[in-house]
Design a protein around this nucleic acid. Structure first.
Length: 228
DNA sequence: CCAGACGTTGTT
DNA sequence: GTCTGG
DNA sequence: CCAGACGTTGTT
DNA sequence: GTCTGG
């Protein structure tokens, strides 16, 4: 699963992943992005626009906002079957930027230990996602999205059985293209991102609280040596 | 036909 | 136990 | 994902 | 809005 992640990159690094996007503003680093918060994305609708959507999919037909609490992830194995997702695969794909994510493992003691996972290169990457547009009772439009998951790779398997679908950079244009052979691409994306390009660290349980998103907590959250 | 769901993870 | 909010 | 709430009447 | 279950 993917229920929490980080994005501390500058706009410039994100522009490298999607050359067609217009220069966006720089933004504050975020180390503890939780469902219901805004996530930085590019939608297949407009590959030139960097925009925020809310994490937690609210399908256009939903009468209530609360369904978004549930639809934070979509299993790639069943994405073509699920009522809430299958139509979106054809028409409403997106990418969501991150440079690391968290997974939890349960200990014998009922406590949960968080781990931070990122690329060895420390580069920003793109999750594969789906989005939709919903109108609230006041007729205001809200764009929301969900992150696609797959089985865990060899690195992550030790702590957890699922992980987010990370798009290899060369597949980003395909995922955002409107002439998509999604059958083939989806089959390809079931294969989890390669483990030897990633690294994983146990981190402080400070990250358990989604309100701890201060850059000042980074050294506490990432307690190993790599943030000197 | 209508009513109710529409999801994932992990645990029992 | 289950839902809501972040 | 985790943390925290989960409620009403009536006013300190 | 559309499918599933009864």
């Amino acid at each position: 699963m993917c229920g929490r992640f980080a994005l501390s990159a500058k706009t410039r690094q994100i522009e490298k992943l999607v050359p067609s996007i217009k220069r966006g503003p720089d933004f504050e680093p975020r180390y503890n992005i939780a469902p219901s918060q805004k996530v930085l994305s590019v939608l297949n609708d407009d590959n030139s626009e960097l925009q925020y959507i809310r994490w937690g999919l609210i399908p256009f037909w939903s009468k209530t906002e609360s369904i978004g609490n549930k639809l934070i992830n979509a299993r790639i194995e069943t994405i073509r079957e699920r009522q809430s997702f299958r139509n979106l695969v054809k028409s409403r794909r997106c990418i969501i930027f991150a440079d690391g994510f968290y997974e939890w493992t349960k200990n014998s003691s009922k406590t949960k230990t968080p781990y931070f996972i990122r690329l060895k290169s420390q580069e920003t990457f793109a999750f594969a996602g789906l989005w939709d547009s919903w109108k609230n009772p006041e007729n205001q439009t809200l764009r929301t999205g969900t992150i696609i998951t797959t089985e865990a790779n060899e690195l992550i398997k030790g702590i957890h059985n699922r992980m987010p679908v990370i798009l290899p950079n060369d597949l980003i244009p395909q995922w955002l293209s409107n002439e998509l052979f999604y059958e083939e691409l989806i089959a390809e994306l079931k294969e989890p991102f390669k483990a030897d390009a990633m690294e994983m660290f146990e981190v402080s349980s400070l990250v358990n609280n989604p309100r701890n998103d201060s850059p000042l907590n980074v050294k506490e959250i990432l307690k190993t040596s790599f943030f000197e």
